[in-house]
Design a protein around this nucleic acid. Structure first.
Length: 589
RNA sequence: GCUCCCGUAGCUCAGCUGGAUAGAGCAGCGGAUUUCUAAUCCGAAGGUCGCAGGUUCAAAUCCUGCCGGGAGCGCCA
C-alpha cells in the first residue's frame, strides 16, 4: 500500500471513530513543505456542512492522530487544515518497501490496453508531424505497462484510403504497360512481379505530386477515386501493387521508428479490416443504425443535447467507397473480439477530435464495444517553430523524422565535445553515448510538455546538459551508477534503508514514496508530462542529498549502508521512470 | 457564423478532480569548488495567473460574458 493510501486510511478511521463522514479524510501531499509533509483539508467542508467550527473539528482529529505511532506530528493550521508529518522510521520503511517486492508494489491489472498511435499513411514518409504521436504514444504505452496493464501498441497504418488510389492512378498514368493495369488484372491472380516497380524514394515523390494534381485535375482526381474504390472492392492487380507499397513503407518506417525507440506490437491498419467493413455496414443497416443520406450511408450521431449539431458519421460515400471512419469503427469491433480491453487509447492530433467524438458516438450507438471498454482520444497539439507557426525547415519543407533524430544527435555531440565529456571512452562507446543523449534530449523535450499544448521545437534547448532536460536526467542517473560502482569496488554494500539523518535525505525518501500516486495521475490523464515533471523533481531532490551527504567517506557504517540502500532504491525507481520517457542511461558519460 | 482548445515571471512551460505565501527551467544578479562525474548546489530578484462579473469559508483552477491567438465544422486522414 502506498504511503498516501495508508495515511488516508488512518485519517479516515479517525474520522469514523469521531462519528464523522470518512469520505472527507483524503490525505494529500502538503502544499506547504515548510509546515508539514502531508495534509488533510476535509475538516473545512465537513465543518461547513455540519455547522461546526472547522478548527475545533481539526483539533480533535489531530489529537487522535498524534496517538498513532506512525505520526510524528499532527496539528491544525490556518482556518482548519490538518497538517501531518510522519515518523522518520516509518517513512524509511515505506521507502524501502517500494523496491522490496516486484513492480514497486503495483498490482497486476490483468487487463489489456490498446494504444493506437503513429497512424502514418503508407504513401507518405515520416516527418516532424509524426513525432508527437510516436513519442507520446510509446510513452503512454510504457506508462500503462508500468501501471501493470497489458498494453500493446498498434501503428494503425493509413493504408486503405484515397492516398492509395492516388498512388495507383499516378503509377498507371506514368507506366500503363505494367501488368497491374492489364485487361483483366482486376480478377487475375497474376503472377505479378515480385520486385516493386517503384522504390520508397519514388513513393515519397509520387504521393505529394499525385495529391497536388488531384486538386487541379478533376479527371485525375476521379481516376484516383475510382482506383481507391476498385482496390477496396478487391481489384487483384491493384492489390498486388498495393502490397509493394506496404512492404516498402513498413520497412522504412520500422527503421525510423526504431531510431526513436518506438516499437509497435501490431502493424495493423485500415486494410486489416478490409473484409469486415461490408458485413459491418450490412448489419448496421439491418439494425437501422445506419441509414442512407444523399447517396451515402451514415450514422446519425447528433444528440438533441448537443450545443452544436454533430455532423453524421460517414460509413460509405456515395460512390460506395470506405474511408477512415468506416475502418476505425470496424477496428473497434475487431479489437473487442477477444477479452474486451480496459481501454483503447488513440494518440492523435487534436484536429481529429471531431472525428473521434463522432466515432465514439457511433460505436456507442452501434454497441460496438462493451461499456467496460473506455474509448479515449488522447489528443495532442502541434510542434511549432520559434515563430509559433508549424515547424518547418529553412526551405519551408516538413523535416523528416530521421533528420530530426540526426539533428538532435549532432547537437548532443557538440554539447559533449564542448564540455569535454565522455573523453576517456572508446569511439564506439562515445558514439553510443551521443546517440542516447540525443534521443533523450528529443523525447524529454517532447514529453515534458503537456500533450495538448502546442510546443516550440527548440533542439538547442533540449540538448542542453543543464536544467530541465533529458541529458541532465541521464547525468544524474549515471552519477548514481558511478557512485554505486565505486562503493562496490571498495567492498561496501547496501544495508537497511534507515531513518533519515538530515532534511535532504528525508526529502529523497518523501519524493520516492510519491511514486504510486504520480503513476496513477499520469495514467488517469494519459499524461507522460506528469512522469517527466516527477523525474526532474526526483533528480533534483536526489542531487541535493548527494551534494550534502558524502556517501563513500561517511564514517558511520550503519549510515553509510543506509545511504547505499537509498541510492539503490532511487536508482531502481529513477531508471524505471526514465524508461517511460524513452530515456536510456549510458554506463558512463 | 457555430463548436473546441489555448492566454500564468523577460523567454519556454508546469500547476487547472478548488485549499495556506501561484511553481520549475532558461536568461540575468550574488555566492559555494583541490567533485562519490560542478553537467552540481545555495541565495536574492522577477507575477494585475488575458479582462469583467458570479458561485464558495476558500478560485490560476468551477460558471457566464468579453478581448486576443489557434484549430475544426458531410463524402480527405
Amino acid at each position: 500500500m502506498s504511503l498516501l493510501r495508508e495515511l488516508t486510511e488512518l485519517v479516515q478511521s479517525v474520522f469514523t471513530a469521531q462519528g464523522l463522514d470518512p469520505s472527507y479524510g483524503d490525505v494529500v501531499v502538503s502544499q506547504r513543505p515548510d509546515l508539514c509533509q502531508f495534509q488533510c483539508n476535509g475538516a473545512l467542508p465537513l465543518a461547513k456542512k455540519a455547522g461546526k467550527n472547522p478548527r475545533e473539528l481539526a483539533t480533535a482529529l489531530a489529537a487522535a492522530l498524534n496517538d498513532d505511532h506512525r505520526i510524528a506530528l499532527a496539528d491544525v493550521a490556518g482556518p482548519g487544515f490538518l497538517n501531518i508529518s510522519v515518523e522518520d522510521d516509518f517513512l524509511a520503511e515505506q521507502s524501502a518497501q517500494l523496491t522490496a517486492g516486484n513492480h514497486f508494489g503495483i498490482e497486476a491489472k490483468n487487463q489489456q490496453v490498446i494504444v493506437d498511435y503513429g497512424g502514418p499513411n503508407i504513401a507518405k514518409s515520416l516527418h516532424v508531424g509524426h513525432l508527437r504521436p510516436a513519442v507520446i504514444g510509446e510513452s503512454v504505452k510504457r506508462l500503462y505497462r508500468f501501471a501493470r496493464y497489458d498494453a500493446i501498441g498498434d501503428v494503425h497504418l493509413g493504408d486503405w484510403g484515397l492516398p492509395m488510389g492516388q498512388l495507383i492512378a499516378a503509377i498507371e498514368d506514368a507506366s500503363p504497360e505494367l501488368p497491374y493495369f492489364a485487361d483483366g488484372a482486376a480478377t487475375s491472380e497474376g503472377p505479378y512481379p515480385t520486385e516493386s516497380p517503384v522504390t520508397i524514394e519514388d513513393l515519397e515523390e509520387l504521393y505529394p505530386q499525385a495529391s497536388a494534381r488531384c486538386k487541379e485535375d478533376k479527371a485525375f482526381a476521379a481516376k484516383a477515386q475510382q482506383a481507391t474504390l476498385a482496390l477496396q472492392k478487391g481489384h487483384l492487380g491493384y492489390r498486388a501493387l498495393w502490397n509493394h507499397f506496404r512492404t516498402l513503407s513498413v520497412a522504412d518506417m520500422t527503421a525510423i521508428y526504431a531510431e526513436l525507440g518506438v516499437h509497435f506490437e501490431l502493424w495493423l491498419g485500415e486494410a486489416s479490416v478490409a473484409d469486415d467493413m461490408a458485413p459491418m455496414i450490412e448489419k448496421l443497416v439491418a439494425n437501422q443504425i445506419a441509414q442512407e443520406s444523399d447517396g451515402a450511408l451514415i450514422i446519425d450521431v447528433a444528440d438533441p443535447k448537443d450545443k452544436k449539431e454533430l455532423p453524421p458519421f460517414m460509413l460509405q460515400n456515395s460512390r460506395g467507397g470506405y474511408s477512415y471512419a468506416t475502418s476505425d469503427l470496424a477496428t473497434i469491433e475487431q479489437r473487442v473480439k477477444g477479452p474486451a480491453p480496459h481501454a483503447i487509447v488513440y494518440v492523435t492530433d487534436a484536429r481529429q477530435s471531431l472525428h473521434f467524438q463522432q466515432l465514439f458516438r457511433a460505436a456507442d450507438k452501434a454497441k460496438m464495444a462493451p461499456a467496460s471498454t473506455q474509448l479515449i482520444h488522447a489528443s495532442h497539439g502541434m510542434v511549432t517553430g520559434k515563430d509559433n507557426k508549424p515547424f518547418k525547415t529553412r526551405d519551408g519543407k516538413l523535416p523528416r523524422l530521421g533528420e530530426l533524430v540526426a539533428d538532435a544527435q549532432k547537437l548532443a555531440a557538440a554539447q559533449i565535445e564542448e564540455n569535454n565529456l565522455a573523453e576517456d571512452l572508446s569511439e564506439t562507446e562515445r558514439a553510443s553515448v551521443i546517440e542516447l543523449v540525443g534521443l533523450a534530449a528529443l523525447t524529454y523535450g517532447e514529453l515534458s510538455n503537456h500533450r495538448t499544448t502546442n510546443y516550440i521545437f527548440d533542439l538547442e534547448k533540449f540538448t542542453e546538459l543543464k536544467g530541465q532536460t533529458g541529458p541532465y536526467l541521464q547525468y544524474v542517473a549515471v552519477r548514481i551508477k558511478s557512485a554505486l560502482q565505486k562503493a562496490a569496488d571498495a567492498g561496501l554494500h547496501a544495508g537497511t534503508l534507515g531513518a533519515a539523518t538530515c532534511d535532504e535525505e528525508r526529502n529523497v525518501q518523501l519524493e520516492l514514496t510519491k511514486l504510486p500516486e504520480i503513476v496513477e495521475r499520469a495514467v488517469a490523464g494519459n499524461a507522460p508530462n506528469i512522469i517527466a515533471e516527477y523525474s526532474y523533481v526526483l533528480a533534483a531532490t536526489f542531487n541535493r542529498f548527494y551534494d550534502k551527504c558524502h556517501i563513500l567517506s561517511e564514517p558511520n557504517a550503519e549510515t553509510q549502508q543506509s545511504w547505499l540502500a537509498l541510492l539503490e532504491t532511487t536508482q531502481s525507481i529513477f531508471t524505471a521512470i526514465l524508461d517511460i520517457l524513452l530515456i536510456q542511461v549510458p554506463e558512463k558519460m
